[in-house]
Design a protein around this nucleic acid. Structure first.
Length: 768
DNA sequence: GAGCACTGC
């Protein structure tokens, strides 16, 4: 003890509490001026002259759910803010003018009429219509949530969108973000007692619904970007359809960008529809005459042709993944230099764009296109090579040319093998339209589709399959049970998943003891659903106090919930592998992750340490380690609130690592593989898939049995993040799953029988 | 001897 060995666990929680204090501080200050006795939107009532324009109540004459656009606009035009009673800021009326210029503004009255006529409304607005910012405000002026305390909520599929839209709308309403207008996302609740309009992620609303099945805090719920059909949106739609029956006072608006609105209308019992035009420029579509054999090569050629012969304007090319993108970036950059020399073309800068790119590099795509090489020379342009991230999450102005090879990586789930994998697949017509639309945001544009018109019409499906049809639903089923859904077979999904997928999920949850044999939620299942984790991880964490290592399992769970912390840059792989070897534990990758995390925490605690350069030097991702820390504190709070003990085996104890390896099995006993024959391959237990240990593993092949975190299907079938285990642990920790009666005769069964005998002998010896 | 499309609690 007492030295600074990198493998020493960090038993204190000083970081957690320090960080908490730092995060909470700012928000407390924000709220300080709106303490319990002061209600800012009633301020005008206390002082009749505060408005400066005569009347004491700006909403005098308003009747909830029976207002007009003219009434609302009159209030918006006042000199004082109707919600805070404060005079409007200098910029308010400028912003208001811009809002009145949006396409959706012309239909404000029409929206209100439809809204009044129905409980559920489907609203279709194309990009640039202003629906995400305006519709919730129109609803606020009609629901008057400041009077009855019931909120208006607007959900978004992504955190950044929830934050940035809330911030924009707070500006538009001239209030402070977090007061009347706020947002709520994981790790950050930016709302207060005064909040009347709340933007939130769809997952966050789902979490709230687990404890409030009727969503009783809200008078109106607006689901935005419903066409994206995320898992959370699909579940929310089904829940809301049901809640709407129980709560006639609840209003629901489904907002979508596609023309597939009829499907939403039909699903919501023929709900009325309102459509608002967008504000985009025409985009001319070009197809290839013949199918392309190599779409990457064709894409590069097309980009260079545009650069050589088309007028000024930036280019957006869609490819499928990091490697493809980086490769294409290099090739295009090299070719364009040659073009500049030989044909006197303008400069071309190429930017990659994908999700795992660090934020400061993602920001570069917003840089201006380069200036001509010389005064009066041909204009420069930028070319962005992006994944699907540019189709939904990020919009880039100034794009005039889109190159669309027609592919993207998509998640697929095979319930038979229980494997989720990523596969390069043709996109849908809706995706192709979305991609083309990216060319017409600032002026008329062109889209070059690298497939034939016939292929577009005949081969592409209309819509990308919703996530619910492409995922393992174990987590979803657990959530639904917690949400009080008893009959999953007849649960009203907009697109019902395959029965086999549901069966697999129920089976998995039953093995994990989250559901009993009747399919009812158990105490363990109810506890597991409290954690923002997959069921296996949650069960592992909940069981970990029994293995005297819940502190360590908290860290491992957090590390498994964030992207890979070990970085391996293409130009420095060897060095990165050498640095990773410093943390390597011979018994497995989970332990190696833990070692790296402990070393990181040691570095953070060291007053002389510089975590940034230390991470850089050790090829560890500081960003991902920090987010693991964040996840860890969230999980820790949940553990504490549920009375789950935080314990560790002393590091000096010879069972320190053994306890952790055993604890892994409490959740992952279904993800075990046994070495087959003499070679390097392994076979998964029960479904008998032949797999290899992923090359990133620290394990030398000296373990007969391994537990693995995930199954990945790429050029081979791999199991990734593996730790060595002993078969007798399986019999002890998961006796139901490893009931010898259920195994066919064979290598696995005989090995388990031998383990059982070994275990009996050991116990007999212990007794005598 | 690989590669994490993209989200979310």
């Amino acid at each position: 003890m007492g030295d600074t060995g990198t493998k020493r666990p960090n038993s204190g929680d000083s970081e957690d509490s320090r960080k908490k204090a730092k995060m909470g501080g700012a928000r407390l200050e924000d709220r300080a001026d709106s303490g319990a006795g002061y209600n800012p939107y009633l301020a005008h009532m206390n002082d009749g002259n505060a408005n400066g324009d005569g009347s004491s109540d700006p909403f005098a004459g308003f009747e909830k759910r029976n207002t007009t656009a003219a009434q609302a606009e009159k209030v918006e035009d006042r000199d004082t803010n109707p919600f805070t009673g404060r005079p409007h800021s200098a910029k308010y009326f400028g912003i208001l003018e811009g809002r009145r210029d949006l396409p959706v503004h012309k239909q404000r009255q029409e929206f209100l009429d439809k809204y009044h006529s129905t409980q559920i409304l489907v609203f279709v607005g194309e990009t640039g219509s202003g629906k995400t910012t305006q519709i919730p405000q129109y609803v606020v002026y009609d629901e008057l949530p400041q009077l009855d305390g019931k909120l208006v909520a607007c959900t978004q599929p992504r955190r950044v969108a929830a934050m940035s839209v809330a911030s924009r709308v707070a500006d538009e309403m001239d209030v402070r973000l977090g007061e009347e207008v706020g947002y709520s996302i994981r790790f950050e609740d930016m709302t207060s007692q005064n909040t009347i309009l709340k933007y939130m992620t769809d997952g966050m609303l789902l979490r709230e619904a687990m404890h409030d099945h009727d969503m009783s805090r809200y008078s109106c719920i607006i689901l935005d970007e419903a066409h994206e059909r995320t898992l959370a949106t699909d579940i929310l739609m089904a829940l809301l359809k049901d809640v709407a029956r129980r709560r006639p006072d609840l209003k629901i608006v489904i907002m979508s960008a596609t023309l597939d609105a009829q499907k939403f209308q039909r699903y919501f019992n023929d709900a009325p529809l309102l459509a608002v035009p967008g504000r985009t420029h025409p985009v001319e579509i070009f197809y290839t005459a013949e199918p392309e054999r190599d779409y990457v090569e064709a894409a590069i050629r097309t980009v260079l042709q545009i650069h050589a012969s088309e007028p000024e304007g930036d280019i957006l090319l869609f490819l499928t993944g990091e490697e493809e993108i980086e490769d294409a970036c290099r090739k295009i950059a090299a070719e364009s230099e040659e073009m500049a020399r030989e044909m006197d073309s303008g400069p071309l800068v190429v930017y990659p764009l994908y999700g795992t790119l660090p934020p400061h590099q993602q920001q570069k795509i917003f840089d201006k296109a380069p200036a001509p090489f010389r005064k009066g020379g041909k204009p420069g342009r930028k070319c962005i090579i992006a994944t699907n991230i540019a189709e939904t999450s990020l919009t880039i102005d100034g794009i005039v040319y889109v190159v669309d090879p027609g592919f993207s990586k998509q998640k697929i789930y095979n319930p038979r093998s229980r494997v989720e994998s990523l596969l390069v697949s043709p996109i849908s017509k809706a995706s192709a339209q979305q991609r083309a639309g990216r060319a017409g945001r600032t002026k008329p544009g062109k889209c070059f589709r690298l497939y034939t018109e016939k292929a577009f019409k005949k081969e592409l499906i209309e819509q990308t399959y919703p996530e619910v049809l492409r995922s393992n639903l174990a987590n979803t089923v657990l959530e639904l049970k917690k949400l009080g859904v008893e009959d999953l077979v007849h649960f009203d999904f907009m697109d019902p998943p395959a029965p086999e997928t549901m069966m697999r999920a129920l089976e998995e949850l039953n093995y994990l003891a989250c559901l009993d044999d009747e399919g009812a939620l158990t105490t363990l299942g109810s506890l597991a659903s409290e954690f923002p984790l997959d069921p296996a991880l949650a069960v592992m964490l909940i069981s970990s106090p029994e293995f005297y290592c819940s502190n360590e399992m908290l860290s491992i769970t957090a590390l498994l919930s964030v992207p890979q912390i070990f970085m391996r840059p293409a130009n420095n792989r060897k060095r990165a592998d050498e640095m990773k070897a410093h943390f390597s534990h011979p018994d497995g990758d989970h332990l190696t992750l833990l070692n790296a995390y402990h070393a990181f925490k040691g570095q953070q605690n060291d007053p002389m340490g510089d975590e940034k350069s230390w991470c850089h030097q050790h090829f560890l991702s500081l960003r991902h380690l920090n987010s693991a820390d964040n996840v860890r504190s969230q999980l820790k709070r949940i553990m504490e609130s549920r009375g789950l003990e935080l314990v560790s085996t002393p590091f000096e104890d010879k069972n320190y690592y053994t306890n952790i390896r055993r604890a892994l099995l409490a959740g992952f006993f279904m993800q075990v593989a046994k070495k087959s024959g003499s070679g390097k391959s392994y076979t998964t237990i029960k479904d008998n898939q032949v797999v290899k240990l992923h090359p990133s593993t620290v394990l030398k092949t000296d373990f007969e049995w391994v537990v693995y975190n995930e199954f990945v299907l790429t050029s081979h079938q791999y199991v990734r993040t593996c730790t060595g285990i002993k078969p007798e642990w399986l019999l002890e920790i998961a006796p139901n799953y490893y009931d010898l009666e259920t195994f066919d005769a064979g290598e696995v069964r005989s090995a388990l029988v031998r383990a059982a005998e070994k275990r009996r002998r050991a116990e007999a010896k212990k007794r005598s």
